[in-house]
């Protein structure tokens, strides 16, 4: 029983990371139509910014700085690199591919390829006893953050004008322009939000894994892609549900099956979902 509780909470912690990455990817893809391979770079930059700043100014400053660094990278990439290429979707993907290769290499040249020990608040290293299970507190940090982010995103999408524009743009962005709305400003916004969420995931991932390395973003990114496809492109709620399914499945199968079986089972799940429901779990992407 204690194993099940621990596995569940660990799986949900992982799901929280996947959700933070996937929701941004999903919005960027849903609205702007960009499959963003540089998303893992946003994550790594956020993670390294916090890692760099924490010993200087403490976590209270370093964490917001990491999130802001992710957001700023997202905005900058959209404005400088992606914007000139709208209406050329393949070139956009290619640019994000090049950026992810060059960006990881850049991080490597500055901070080396080896993992660096990551700072974390003292209380996150403690454990809480639930039933008979000893659960590390960092799990709750991840899960709690993801829940807050999910609620905030849904409120933003449903209660604000920009949220309305994003939801409509995911369905049909040409029509949004034809209503007299500058939909590209919303593109910058989703890139910024996606960058901020990826930066958050980078910081939390660093705390969760205990270390940060230049390639960390890329390896998380692939599972986040799977979450996005399973959840339905453009759907935040779909991403949340899919992240939970993927995180739990991966943890449980990895524990009870052979090592690596959990990762494989996630891909099998993806294949099944695509065969049964090609548009993903969310019936329409528009429900956000």
């Amino acid at each position: 029983m204690s194993t099940v509780i621990l596995l569940t909470l660990t799986g949900l912690g992982l799901a929280a990371l996947y959700f933070l990455i996937a929701s941004g990817l999903s919005l960027v893809f849903g609205l702007a139509g960009v499959l963003n391979f540089a998303h893992g770079l946003f994550l790594s930059i956020g993670a390294y910014a916090t890692w760099w700043a924490a010993p200087r100014w403490g976590l209270a400053v370093a964490v917001p700085l990491g999130i802001a660094a992710g957001a700023a990278t997202g905005a900058l990439v959209e404005v400088v690199l992606i914007r000139p290429l709208y209406k050329r979707p393949t070139e956009q993907v290619l640019v994000t591919v090049g950026l992810s290769l060059a960006g990881v290499a850049l991080l490597q040249s500055v901070w080396g390829a080896d993992p660096r020990t990551y700072p974390r608040p003292a209380w996150a290293s403690e454990v809480t006893t639930i039933g008979s299970a000893q659960v590390p507190d960092d799990r709750f940090l991840l899960i709690g953050t993801a829940v807050v982010v999910l609620l905030a995103l849904l409120a933003f999408l449903h209660k604000t004008r920009y949220g309305l524009i994003i939801r409509a743009g995911v369905e049909n962005r040409d029509m949004v322009s034809a209503l007299g709305i500058d939909v590209r400003r919303a593109f910058t916004l989703v890139f910024t939000i996606g960058g901020a969420l990826a930066g958050t995931a980078g910081v939390l991932g660093g705390m969760y894994f205990g270390s940060v390395s230049p390639g960390q973003g890329a390896s998380l990114l692939i599972f986040a892609f799977i979450v996005v496809v399973i959840g339905g492109l453009g759907s935040v709620t779909g991403s949340a549900v899919a992240a939970v399914v993927v995180g739990l499945l991966q943890q449980f199968v990895n524990y009870y099956g052979t090592a690596g079986a959990g990762d494989v089972s996630v891909v099998v799940l993806l294949a099944l979902v695509l065969l049964l429901r090609p548009s993903g779990l969310a019936r329409t992407a528009a429900t956000a």
Partner: peptide, 20 residues
């Protein structure tokens, strides 16, 4: 512009379509 095939936003409510 009133486009061919109407192009209303199916996931949005009527009020949201108008507000947009």
């Amino acid at each position: 512009y009133v486009p061919e095939d109407r192009c209303v936003f199916g996931g949005l409510t009527v009020a949201e379509n108008l507000r947009l």
